[in-house]
C-alpha cells in the first residue's frame, strides 16, 4: 500500500522557539557556514514570524514554520528539473531531491512558490574534527546543488530496514518520525499518513481550522497548517502587501 506522508502544523501551539530548525539541521548535517548570509544559508525548515500589524493589545503574532510542502499535483519543481533530480516518490508522496544528480541550475528554486528550496552556495564546512559528530545516515551535500526537506527520508529508510529485518512489509509508524516533529516541544507539528483513513492526521486535515498555503495554485501541498485565529487562516490565500507586517524569521 502506498503512503501519502503529510503534516499538520498547529500554529496556535507554535512558540517560535526554533527547536524544529535546529533538530532538522542537526539531523540533516546542515553545515554552519560562517560566511553564509540570511539569503544564502541553508534552512530546510525555516520558522518565520508574522504579525497582524496591530499595536499594543491589538497586536497578534504567529510563527509559521515553512518547509517543502510536498505538493502532490503538478509539483512545480518536478516538471522543471532538466535531469530528473527531483521526483515524487509514488510509494510515500515525498518530493525527493537527489543532490548527486543535480547540476545546480536552480530552475526548481524559481519554480517553488514557497521558497522552500535552498542552494548550496558554499562548500560544506565544519570545525576540524566535527565529522565525527555528523549524522551517519545522511550524506553531506556538496557545493553547487539544491536541497530541501525530504521528510527525513533517512529515518524512513531505517524504519523500512527495521521492518524488513523482522520480515514485515509495513513500517511501524512509531519508527518513522521526522526530526522536526520529534523536536517540537509543544507537539505543534504532527506527522502522519494521509492515505490511511485511521491516521489521526486524516481526521485533522478535515477540521475547519486547517488550511494550506496557496492552494489556489492547484499544487495540492501535503503540509497543512491549523489555527483558530481567522487572521492567521486568512494568510493562506491573501495577497502580499495586504497589511500584514512581516519579518524574515
Amino acid at each position: 500500500m502506498s503512503a501519502r506522508y503529510g503534516m499538520v502544523i498547529d500554529l496556535d501551539r507554535c512558540t517560535g522557539c526554533g527547536a524544529c530548525m535546529m533538530a532538522c539541521a542537526a539531523e540533516n548535517n546542515v553545515p554552519p557556514v560562517p560566511r553564509a548570509t540570511p539569503r544564502t544559508g541553508l534552512t530546510p525548515m525555516l520558522v518565520r514570524k508574522v504579525s497582524n500589524g496591530g499595536e499594543g493589545v491589538d497586536r497578534r503574532e504567529v510563527f509559521i514554520p515553512i518547509m517543502c510542502m510536498h505538493c502532490e499535483r503538478e509539483t512545480p519543481c518536478v516538471g522543471v528539473c532538466p535531469q530528473q533530480a527531483v521526483e515524487v516518490d509514488k510509494a510515500t508522496g515525498i518530493v525527493m531531491q537527489m543532490p548527486q544528480r543535480c547540476l545546480g541550475c536552480r530552475y526548481c528554486m524559481t519554480a517553488c512558490p514557497y521558497h522552500a528550496r535552498y542552494f548550496n552556495w558554499w562548500d560544506p564546512q565544519w570545525p576540524a574534527g566535527m565529522e565525527k559528530a555528523l549524522n551517519p545516515g545522511v550524506a553531506v551535500r556538496m557545493r553547487g546543488v539544491v536541497e530541501k526537506c525530504n521528510l527525513c527520508h533517512a529515518r524512513l529508510h531505517s524504519a523500512t530496514q527495521k521492518a524488513a529485518a523482522t520480515g514485515k512489509r509495513e513500517i511501524n509508524p512509531a519508527d518513522y518520525v521526522p526530526a522536526c516533529v520529534e523536536a517540537c516541544p509543544t507537539a505543534a507539528i504532527r506527522f502522519g499518513n494521509l492515505a490511511d483513513k485511521h491516521d489521526p492526521l486524516s481526521l485533522e486535515v478535515r477540521s475547519p481550522d486547517t488550511f494550506r498555503f496557496l492552494t489556489r495554485l492547484g499544487t495540492e501541498p501535503k503540509v497543512y497548517y491549523k489555527s483558530k485565529e481567522a487572521w492567521v487562516r486568512a494568510l493562506a490565500e491573501s495577497n502580499s502587501g495586504s497589511g500584514v507586517e512581516t519579518k524574515r524569521g
Partner: peptide, 15 residues
C-alpha cells in the same frame, strides 16, 4: 551557542 544555532538564528532572524 552551537555554531549551528548561531547560524540558524542569524539566517532565520528568529532570535
Amino acid at each position: 551557542l552551537p555554531s549551528l544555532a548561531s547560524k540558524l538564528y542569524q539566517e532565520s532572524g528568529l532570535r
